[in-house]
Write a protein that binds this DNA or RNA. Structure first.
Length: 564
RNA sequence: UGGGGCGUAGCCAAACGGCAAGGCAGCGGACUCUGGAUCCGCCAUCUGAAGGUUCGAAUCCUUCCGCCCCAGCCA
C-alpha cells in the first residue's frame, strides 16, 4: 500500500487550517471522480495519489465516483479498467464506490426545487440559438425568450421532458442566473439536456441527463465530500458550483480547490488524443507500452511504487507545468535498481569463436544475481564454451580513443568469465560486414583478479552459443519526437516517433531466463530494465519489453563527439 | 478586448517580511568485473520587468510584460 506523503502543498495547508478551525467536524473526505469514457493516464495518477493520499494522511476517506452523466460517451468497459488501475496503483476505496447516476432522482428533485424557487426554467432554444445568445467574452448575452415562463409551465414542461415527450435537443433546463455575467458559466447554464439514450447504469429510465455542473457539486454534497479537488480549468466553474450549492443548501458543504494538471514532455495526455492513437492504430491499444496510460505503463513494466513516487516528486501546485519525461524514467530506474536481478542478454549478436578453447568443453561459471550485494539474491551458473555471442556494438574495427571494448588486438573481460583478445575478424565477402570474431582466451583470468599492472579496458556481456535462448526484445522509446506534440502547429500525430518501437527477433538471452514468468523484471546488464510481457510472451519464445534503458554515458559521448 | 488564474535555474518546486530548500537534468572527480549503481563536489548575489513601502522584499503596494483557461445541450 501507499506510504505517507513527504511533501506538503497548498491543499494540505488549506486542509490543515480547516481541521484546526474545526470545519466539517474535522473530517476530511475527498473523491476521485473519473468519467468512464477512456482509460486512466499518469495525469489521473497524480489526482488519485493526491486525493487518496489526503484521505490516508488525515484519517479521512476517499470515494471513487464515476461521473457518468453522459451516456453518449461512456462505456462499462472503462469502468472496469478504471477500477483495476486504481487498485493496481495501490489505493482502496473500500465501501465508497459511487456513481453520479445513483443520484439522478435526488438531482431531479433538487431541479424541481430550483424551478419552484424561480431559479431554473425550461428553454426551447436550439443549441445554436443558445450559443448565439450567450454573448461573447466582451459582450453580455441576451436573455432567452423563455426565461420568464411561469413556475407552473416550467414544472409541467420539465416533467414532460423527463417523461420523454420531446425529442433530443428540443428543450433544456437552464439555471436562471445572469446573462450579463462576465463569467460565461453563469450565463444561464444548461442543467439538463434530452438524450434518449440507454445509460450503462440506469438503463432507459431516464431520457434527460444532467450536465457536469449540475451533477458534480451536488454529488459532492450528497457524499459529504469536504474538499472537492479538481484541475485548474474548472476554476471558472467554482462560482457556479457555489451558486448551485447555495440554492439547495445541503447539510454538507463541499469546497472546490483546483490544482495544475500534469503535463509530461514527449507525451500527450488528452483523452481525445489518446483515444485517437488507439482508434487509428498508431498504438496496439490502451495498454500499448508506449502509452502514458496506467495500463500502458503497467504493461511496460513500471511498478506502481515508481508511479506513486513520481507523483510525489512532481509535487502539487497551481502553476501550469510540464514535467520532464526524464524524471519519470529516473524514478523507475531508482525503484527497480535495488530490487531487480541482473542477467545477460545480447541484443544484436555477433559470433565469437575462441580458438584456443577446447572444441567440446563446457564450463560453468558462477554469476551473482545482484552484484552490488551478492548474498541478497544468490548465484546462478552460466555455461561457457568455445563459441559465444557478444553485442555487435561492443566491437569496433577501428575504434576511437575512448572506446574500451573489443577491437582487433585488444582485450576485454567477459562478464563473470575470462579475458579474451581479438585476433581476427571474419567478414562477409560481399558486404564487408563483420560476421564473426576470432579470439583467444586467457585461462588464468576466470574470476581472478588481474595481476598488478595489467589493465583491461572494459567488461562486456555475452551468451554461450550452444546454450543461449532466442528471445524477442521490444525496445520502446518515447512516442513523440518533440517535447510538446499537442502544442505544435501541425496535428500531434505528425510528431509520432517512427522508431518508438523496435523489435529485435534475434536476441539471445542466457539460459536461466527459461524460468522467467510474465511480469518478471530483470536488468539486462549494461542495457536496461526489462519485463516479460504479460500478454505475448510464450514459454519457448519469451518476449521482453524494455522498461527503461540504463543511463549510457558512452552513447552520450558518441553523440557529443567526446570519444577521442 | 471581459472574467478567472499563473510567472523562482534547462524541467518540477520550497520559501508565508529576516537574508533563495530539495529533486530531475547538466558539469567535474572518486570508485567499479555493468561506460550502470554508489559516493563527493559544482550548478539562481537572485525570484518576468520597472518603480515604491520597509532597517530589511521572491514575499506588501503600483504600473507594465508574458503565458494558461472560459463563448459544449463535454467533463
Amino acid at each position: 500500500m501507499s506510504e505517507p506523503t513527504r511533501f506538503s502543498n497548498f491543499i494540505r495547508q488549506i486542509i490543515e487550517a480547516d481541521i484546526a478551525a474545526g470545519k466539517n467536524g474535522g473530517r476530511v473526505v475527498t473523491r476521485f471522480p473519473p468519467e468512464p469514457n477512456g482509460y486512466l493516464h499518469i495525469g489521473h495518477a497524480k489526482s488519485i495519489c493526491l486525493n487518496f493520499g489526503l484521505a490516508r494522511d488525515y484519517g479521512g476517506r476517499c470515494h471513487l465516483r464515476f461521473d457518468d452523466t453522459n451516456p453518449l460517451k461512456e462505456d462499462i468497459e472503462y469502468i472496469e479498467a478504471i477500477k483495476e488501475d486504481v487498485c493496481w496503483l495501490g489505493f482502496d476505496w473500500g465501501e465508497h464506490l459511487y456513481h453520479a447516476a445513483d443520484y439522478f432522482d435526488q438531482l431531479y428533485e433538487w431541479a424541481v426545487k430550483l424551478i419552484r424557487a424561480g431559479k431554473a426554467y425550461v428553454c426551447d432554444l436550439t443549441a445554436d440559438q443558445i450559443r448565439d445568445t450567450r454573448g461573447t467574452l466582451t459582450e453580455p448575452g441576451k436573455e432567452s425568450p423563455y426565461r420568464n415562463r411561469s413556475v407552473e409551465e416550467n414544472l409541467d414542461l420539465f416533467r414532460r421532458m423527463r417523461a420523454g415527450e420531446f425529442p433530443d435537443g428540443a428543450r433544456v433546463l437552464r439555471a436562471k442566473i445572469d446573462m450579463a455575467s462576465p463569467n460565461l458559466n453563469l450565463r444561464d447554464p444548461v442543467m439538463y439536456r434530452i438524450r434518449h439514450e440507454v445509460h450503462h447504469r440506469t438503463g432507459d429510465r431516464w431520457c434527460i441527463y444532467s450536465t457536469y455542473d449540475w451533477a458534480h457539486g451536488q454529488s459532492d454534497a450528497i457524499e459529504g465530500i469536504t474538499h472537492s479537488i479538481c484541475t485548474l480549468e474548472f476554476e471558472d466553474h467554482r462560482p457556479l458550483y457555489d451558486w448551485f450549492l447555495d440554492q439547495i443548501d445541503p447539510p454538507h458543504r463541499p469546497r472546490q480547490i483546483e490544482f495544475a494538471r500534469l503535463n509530461l514532455s514527449f507525451a500527450v495526455m488528452s483523452k481525445r488524443m489518446l483515444n485517437e492513437l488507439v482508434r487509428d492504430g498508431h498504438v496496439s491499444g490502451w495498454d500499448d507500452p508506449r502509452m502514458p496510460t496506467l495500463a500502458g505503463l503497467r504493461r511496460r513494466g513500471y511498478t506502481s511504487e515508481a508511479i506513486r513516487e513520481f507523483c510525489e516528486r512532481i509535487r502539487v501546485a497551481r502553476a501550469d507545468s510540464t514535467v520532464d519525461m526524464e524524471l519519470l524514467e529516473n524514478t523507475v530506474r531508482e525503484d527497480l535498481n535495488p530490487r531487480v536481478p541482473r542477467v545477460m542478454a545480447v541484443h544484436r549478436p555477433l559470433k565469437v569463436v575462441i580458438e584456443n578453447y577446447p572444441e567440446d568443453r563446457v564450463e560453468e561459471v558462477e554469476a551473482p544475481n545482484f552484484p552490488d550485494d551478492p548474498p541478497r539474491m544468490g548465484l546462478r551458473k552460466l555455461p561457457f564454451c568455445r563459441v559465444i555471442y557478444i553485442e555487435r556494438d561492443d566491437f569496433m574495427e577501428s575504434p576511437p580513443k575512448k572506446f574500451h571494448r573489443l577491437s582487433p588486438g585488444r582485450e576485454v573481460r567477459l562478464r563473470w568469465s575470462y579475458v579474451i583478445q581479438c585476433t581476427g575478424v571474419v567478414k562477409d565477402e560481399r558486404t564487408g560486414e563483420v560476421v564473426e570474431l576470432r579470439c583467444t582466451y586467457d585461462p588464468d583470468t576466470l574470476n581472478a583478479p588481474l595481476p598488478e599492472g595489467r589493465k583491461i579496458g572494459g567488461t562486456i556481456h555475452w551468451v554461450s552459443a550452444a546454450h543461449a535462448l532466442k528471445a524477442t526484445l521490444r525496445l520502446y522509446d518515447r512516442l513523440f519526437t518533440v517535447p510538446n506534440p499537442a502544442g505544435g502547429e501541425a496535428d500531434f500525430k505528425t510528431y509520432l516517433n517512427p522508431s518508438s518501437l523496435q523489435v529485435l527477433q534475434e536476441a539471445l538471452v542466457e539460459p536461466s531466463l527459461a524460468e522467467a514468468r510474465p511480469g518478471d523484471r530483470f536488468q539486462f546488464e549494461r542495457k536496461g530494465f526489462y519485463v516479460v510481457d504479460l500478454k505475448d510472451s510464450q514459454p519457448g519464445m519469451p518476449v521482453f519489453n524494455l522498461i527503461v534503458p540504463l543511463r549510457d554515458t558512452w552513447a552520450k559521448m558518441v553523440k557529443t563527439g567526446q570519444t577521442e
